[in-house]
Nucleic acid binder design. Structure first.
Length: 427
RNA sequence: GUGGAUGUAGCUCAGUUGGUUAGAGCACUAGAUUGUGGAUCUAGGGGUCGGGGGUUCGAUUCCCCUCAUCCACCCCA
């Protein structure tokens, strides 16, 4: 019976695994540079955990199942709920602030397409317990820090930043009721993704007043924080939110990221739980979906039964990132080593085969990466294998060992070879 | 859930106005006077032409169904 891989999944053969490691290692290095520590949780949780903050629609996008104890479970589609659960559980013991990162493997039952799979990896960083927007700026900077380290520049990507709090205050100012906001966010989120007519049409379903719709259109067209007071009257709350957003940008400037960042009213994020700063990083050509997204979610921990603790964070998936890095030539198939050896042991004399195995074992016991050929075929052949395995050095076990107890050690990069005493070398 | 495109070797693809044993490059294996890698050359293995049905003397080619993949919608934590 021919078995097929499941839709939307990937097989990581060694070359693809090298790519995955390249990405994940970069994420981890950036996290550590920026002072985050790693955590992880289970790959499945109670289904209910994902229903708390999202509706039943989300459940259709989940891989869920029932275990033998009739527990309704789901494979994690994101790790933030797990994070909230874990932090709530130990909230009194954990030193604040918490700066944690994770690279969870996630699954969502969506239809696969470019940059979107059903199983993927997502880098998450979160800062919990810092109310100041300094934490928001730091999250953005850490994301950019990683991207900069891959070789991307501010010409390639841009962090688009806005504020849910500001948006809410402004919408209220133009006469939108508090309870309307939640249903409006997903529509506003589409502003730049669909034609204006379609956007207006969607708004008309929610809002009766044509003047209000016009006001929204004007609002969504704002491109600079400084233009806001000219377009909308600011009440105290809006002014506060605006000042806060300006402080985010001030911090970003101090962190040297101003070239990479800009205010963008159209960044809303579909998700309901964001309460403050929201951001997405996009490729500048705009052909790809968002590279990463995140923001402040001050109510999530309390929504999960904990105390009210402030939090901000972001997630970056591996699929879009890989496409972008390849497009920019920053990741090519032959730029990554699949294997690296300190030594390859080549045996050219059938009588010495057991010796060669012993020698390899001793080298391994000394802590080096070593491999040998399973056959004593032509040296030429074995050199080729050594080369394909990326061996730094090749040890030749042959006549010299028989005659004078010596080994030939060839440096594969320079081609130079030396004779060493086998016993001393292996001590 | 909707629409479009594509399925030929491990990979990227050619091919056939319907006609004998279906090809190339890369990869793999083995060689090129048997102790020296990255190159070149030679040879070899590997395909029920995605699957099923139909038309036909004959189908990889034409028709229908099906499955899969990719792309765009929907959605996107």
């Amino acid at each position: 019976m021919k078995m097929q891989p499941v839709k939307g999944t990937r097989d990581f053969y060694p070359p693809q695994m090298a790519v995955r490691n390249f990405i994940v290692d970069g994420w981890k290095a950036s996290s550590i540079r920026n002072g985050f520590v790693e955590y992880d949780g289970p790959i499945f949780e109670y289904l209910q955990m994902y229903q708390v903050k999202s509706g039943d629609e989300i459940v259709e996008q989940l891989f869920n199942f029932t275990d033998r104890g009739n527990r309704h479970l789901a494979i994690r589609p994101e790790i933030t709920p797990t994070l909230a659960r874990m932090i709530n559980k130990q909230i009194n013991a954990l030193p604040m602030p918490i700066k944690w990162f994770s690279v969870p493997r996630l699954c969502r039952a969506e239809r696969p397409q470019k940059g979107r799979l059903r199983e993927f990896f997502q880098w998450n960083i979160d800062i919990i317990g810092i109310e100041d927007v300094l934490a928001d700026a730091e999250v953005i900077c850490c994301s950019l820090d990683y991207l900069r380290n891959t070789g991307l520049t501010s010409k390639d990507v841009v962090a688009k930043i806005s504020s849910r709090r500001l948006l809410a205050a402004l919408l209220k100012n133009i006469g939108i009721a508090e309870e309307k906001l939640e249903s409006l966010y997903p529509i506003l989120d589409k502003k730049t993704k669909i034609p204006v007519e379609a956007f207006v049409e969607m708004l008309e379903k929610e809002i009766d007043s044509p003047e209000t719709i016009q006001a929204i259109l004007k609002l969504m067209d704002i491109h600079s924080v400084n233009d806001i007071p000219d377009i909308v009257k600011l009440d105290e709350k809006a002014q506060e939110s605006l000042d806060e957003l300006k402080r985010v940008f001030a911090y970003l400037e101090k962190m040297g990221a101003e070239d990479w960042c800009r205010f963008d009213m159209s960044i809303v994020r579909g998700l309901a739980y964001y309460t403050g700063m929201v951001f997405e990083i996009h490729d500048k050509s705009g052909d790809l979906r968002a590279i990463c997204g995140g923001g402040r979610y001050d109510n999530l921990l309390s929504d999960f039964g904990g105390p009210k603790v402030t939090a901000t964070g972001m997630g970056m998936g591996d699929a879009v990132l890989e496409i972008l890095l390849r497009e920019k030539g920053l990741l090519t198939d032959d730029s990554l080593d699949i294997q690296k050896l300190d030594y390859f042991v080549a045996c050219v004399d059938g009588d010495l085969f057991d010796e060669a195995v012993e020698i390899t074992t001793k080298i391994r016991q000394k802590g080096y990466a070593a491999n040998f050929s399973y056959k004593t075929n032509a040296l030429k052949k074995q050199m080729k294998i050594a080369d394909s395995m990326n061996a730094a050095k090749c040890i030749i076990v042959g006549g010299e060992l028989k005659e004078s107890g010596q080994l030939v050690i060839k440096d594969m990069a320079t081609g130079e070879q030396i004779l060493v005493d086998a016993t001393t070398f292996l001590e």
